[in-house]
Structures are given as C-alpha cells and as structure tokens.
C-alpha cells in the first residue's frame, strides 16, 4: 500500500527527516511514537503534500504510484487522508459545503456517481453518529469555535465521509478526555475492514489500548530507530525514550 524509502525532507534549510524507511501493507495498523520534535508531524505533512517541506532524497510509493509527484489534492483523491494534529479553523466556510465539495471531487476521481442531496445528508447522518458528533457542528463553519475534542472528532468524521484507503492520524488522542478517546477509537476501529491501512502517531499507550496496532515504530531525529509489535509501545511507556536515544546518539 505505502512504501517509504530513505526519505529526506527539510524545511527552511533545516533537515528534519533523515533517511526514513517504512512499509505499510494493506489492512495494517502502524503506530509511530517518538519524542517531541523527532519529525512525526513532518512525516505526516510530507505524506499529505504540504509544499513548505522540500523532499531532498528518497521515494514514496502509494498503491504503486509515485506519491511525491502528486499535488495534495490528488493524494487525497487517491485515498490518502491526514487527520491533522492541529485542525485549522476556517471561519465563513461551512463544514457541509466544504464536505460536499470534497466528497464530490473524491467520488468523481474514483469514477463514482455524484451523491444526491438526500444521499449526502444520509451519509452525514450516519458518519456523524459514528463519532457522536453533534449534528449542529456539521452545520457550523469548519472547526470554528470547536473545542479541542470536537475538532478531533470532526477529523474522524471527515475521514469516515471521504472513505480513504490510508489514514494518517497525527496525535488524534491529544486533547481528548476518556470518553472522547473511546468514541474516536471506536470510530476508527469501525473503519478497520482488513483493507484500509492506518498510521497512528501518538505519544501514549492509552490510545493503543483501543486501537491495537500491528506494528510500532520509534521515530527519533528523523529516522525510524526501532520497530516492533504492540509490546514495544508498552516497553516505551515503561522505560521512556532515553535508552533508545542513548544507543542512537552513541552511533
């Protein structure tokens, strides 16, 4: 599904990803953990196509296509979805209008018929229930005045609406209380269907109790320094990152 090889990326002359490789198969859930500033969000942004980042080396193949060659919107249409760590507020743009446009573009790209107004509303109803998002929120401006938790739920709601094949979740758990965490995780789990793949970026085991990963990777200084199964996350929770940092910094 996704193959990242020796990825180097920089922003404003500062190299942040320094030879990152990662392969994600169909239906797999990969957790990416790592200390602050290690480059997790940078990886997510580079995958999603943010133009501020310059890829200086490496390749990314998504469903056997060159991902780096595509504009952000093409990546979305091809089935990549990024749930932002900090979803932006867009006053004046209604959630509904924007989603209608997004769903329209994506369906068109996939050769599907446009939804009727009724079908669209039905889909909104169904998917907003999935994350228990208040129907009123869907009618407001994108993220405007939403609480931290509401913003994150709105991300998962949009993800469900757009039906991607690869979901990248950047710290979707931060800012969520226990109930919201459960709701969001259940929403994500409901979307696990053996085909859809997930990259879950998080600092905490807490989320991984709900969304159980197949693989766990540690990102440090722009590289994957350790990979393992879900037990690695437990180990990290217990021991922190220092032991990994020491071995890595010694190199």
């Amino acid at each position: 599904m996704l193959k990242i090889e020796n990825l180097h990326a920089r922003i404003e002359e500062k190299e942040i990803l320094k030879g990152l490789s990662l392969t994600i198969g169909e239906g797999e859930v990969h957790a990416i953990m790592g200390p602050n500033g290690s480059g997790k969000s940078t990886l997510a942004s580079v995958l999603a196509g943010r133009e501020d980042y310059e890829v200086t080396e490496g390749t990314v193949t998504f469903n056997s296509k060159d991902l780096l060659d595509m504009a952000a919107e093409e990546r979305a249409r091809e089935g990549l979805f990024l749930a932002f760590q900090y979803p932006v507020e867009i006053p004046g743009v209604s959630n509904m209008n924007f989603l209608k446009a997004a769903v329209g573009e994506i369906r068109k790209h996939r050769g599907l018929e446009a939804l009727t107004a009724k079908e669209f509303l039905q889909l909104v109803k169904e998917k907003s229930q999935l994350v228990e998002l208040d129907g009123q929120l869907a009618n407001r401006a994108v993220n405007e005045g939403f609480s931290g938790g509401e913003k994150k739920r709105n991300e998962i709601f949009q993800m469900a609406m757009l039906d991607p094949s690869l979901c990248v979740l950047d710290e979707t758990d931060s800012g969520l209380d226990i109930d919201a965490l459960r709701i969001v995780s259940e929403g994500v789990n409901a979307m696990r269907d053996g085909k859809r793949s997930f990259v879950v970026i998080t600092h905490y085991q807490r989320l991984l109790d709900h969304i159980v990963p197949d693989f766990v990777h540690v990102l440090y200084k722009g590289k994957i320094v350790k990979s393992g199964t879900k037990e690695l996350a437990l180990e990290l929770e217990e021991k922190g990152y220092d032991w990994l940092k020491e071995t890595e910094d010694a190199k």
Partner: peptide, 26 residues
Amino acid sequence: NEEALFYLRARGLSEESAKRLLVSAF
C-alpha cells in the same frame, strides 16, 4: 491563509476551488 488552503486541498479540493471557497468565506 495558507494553512486553511492546505487543509482544504488535503481533503481533495483543487487549489482553485479551495481558493474560491476561501474568497467567498472572506
């Protein structure tokens, strides 16, 4: 607002239609 523009594009809107949506919001 480049952040907003990127957000909309990352959801599948073309740059052109994302800009127009932001103009009508503005």
